[in-house]
């Protein structure tokens, strides 16, 4: 799935309007792994939310797989996120009352395309792939930061999305866990041919991906 942005702009309205993303145009090919870097507050996360259909732009157009996103209804956007976009956030974005397995099950249960047994089977496989087969019935509180983040990755992959969006996925992790998460993301791009978009501070990690987009003050530099 390709992502095409045509002069995306996001302005936060308020007493003092703040421009988060300014006139960003870009094209991301299917299977491409792209890093979005930039200083804090440069608008890179905001850009990611726009590209991931989590937020709607103030102006400009976004095309995912050649579909104009602004023409979709809210419900269709939700469906698009559910099926084709997998989000990974900075940290601890798991539902606290649900076990690792149940967290991974959520998107599948919402989509409802598999049978219950198939869903559980797939969740177990995903957790195994991120190296957590021993922790499937633990609640997030009992997991370390790195483990939580890997559960979040497994959950993002649940419905086999074509595009993975990660917002500083290693931001709160120690170096060992960071490495593991980075490796998983690289493998997703290389082996599984997913489109991967990562907002990151880690220069080395960014350079290991196909392309680096640098954002300063909401613009591509």
């Amino acid at each position: 799935m390709s992502i095409v942005a045509d002069s995306l702009t996001k302005i936060l309205t308020g007493e003092v309007p703040v421009t988060l993303v300014k006139d960003v145009s870009l094209r991301i090919e299917p299977g491409e792994a792209v890093a979005i870097t930039g200083p804090s507050g440069s608008g890179k996360s905001s850009l990611l939310y726009l590209l991931g259909v989590l937020d709607s732009p103030s102006s400009g157009e976004l095309y995912i797989d050649n579909t104009k996103v602004s023409s979709l209804s809210d419900s269709e956007k939700s469906k698009l996120r559910l099926k084709h976009l997998g989000f990974i956030f900075q940290a601890h974005f798991l539902l606290p009352e649900f076990t690792a397995l149940e967290n991974v099950l959520l998107p599948m249960q919402r989509l409802g395309e598999l049978t219950g047994a198939e869903m559980i089977e797939r969740s177990k496989t995903l957790l195994e792939q991120v190296g957590l087969s021993d922790h499937i019935s633990k609640i997030p509180k009992k997991l370390s930061g790195g483990q939580s983040q890997r559960v979040a990755i497994a959950r993002a992959l649940a419905n086999n999305p074509k595009i993975i969006l990660a917002d500083e996925p290693t931001g709160n992790l120690d170096s060992v866990s960071s490495k593991q998460v980075q490796e998983i993301l690289i493998r997703l791009a290389r082996e599984f041919k997913r489109t991967v978009l990562v907002v990151t501070h880690e220069e080395e990690f960014a350079r290991s991906l196909d392309r680096v987009i640098r954002i300063v003050d909401g613009r591509i530099q």
């Binding site: 809210d74 698009l80 996120r81 956030f89 974005f93 919402r110 989509l111």
Partner: peptide, 16 residues
């Protein structure tokens, strides 16, 4: 609030 944000980012609709 955080759970709601997670669910929405996964693709749960407001009506869900």
């Amino acid at each position: 609030q955080r759970d709601i944000a997670i669910l929405k980012s996964i693709g749960f609709e407001p009506k869900d």
